[in-house]
Amino acid sequence: MDLETERQPRSINEIVAIIEALIFVADEPVSAKLLAEVLDEDRETIEAAVEQLQNEYQHRESGLTLREIAGGWQISTRAEFHTEVRKFLKTRPNAKLSLAALETLAVIAYKQPVTVPEILEIRGVQSASAIKTLLDKRLITAKGRKETVGRPMQYGTSKEFLLQFGLKDLSELPSIEDFEDLAGSI
């Protein structure tokens, strides 16, 4: 940053406060890297500060919570208060994805990058319109072509997917083995 004068080293509380302000004004989750750049502090300091802020919200049982999502930090309301928040905002939950779209999304999330024929093989049904829905909702993106016969397009999940499903990153998805173990039981 273009601070010309020598600045006093900030206290950790000050850093926590600035981080809170930045995350508050941001439209999107803010990465620790970006926070470090803006504050001109090292990553360790930022991470410690973020953790402290998160604890503060928890300790005073705030209506807000600081959470890590899609590779960044975000302040959001706690899910418990959804009824009141919805009543206040006068909104209703968005239309849900169809069964077919959800299934297709699950296959893409776990097998990415994956092609349309590969999805067909698992689902046993054409998935063209489900894929179109997912593309329209920006939950998936094209990830180049597969170097095989016909060079089919490959798909993978997007950042929007992480946001809408409340995921830090893809590694936060439960492992597919957990679902394999469930399969086959009555």
Binding site: F24, V25, D27, Q74, I75, S76, T77, R78, A79, H82, V85, L89, P93, N94, K96, L97, L99, L102, E103, L105, A106, V107, A109, Y110, I122, R123, G124, Q164, F165, G166, L167, P174, I176, F179, E180, L182, A183, G184
Partner: peptide, 29 residues
């Protein structure tokens, strides 16, 4: 079995998105 694995995974996604819809972030400036 393979299909059911992904069907189970899709249920997990469904639950996640339901929870996610109960969480709100500050409206844009």
């Amino acid at each position: 079995l393979e299909y059911e694995t992904y069907k189970n995974a899709s249920q997990m996604l469904w639950t996640r998105s339901t929870v996610e819809q109960a969480i709100f972030t500050r409206g844009k400036i």
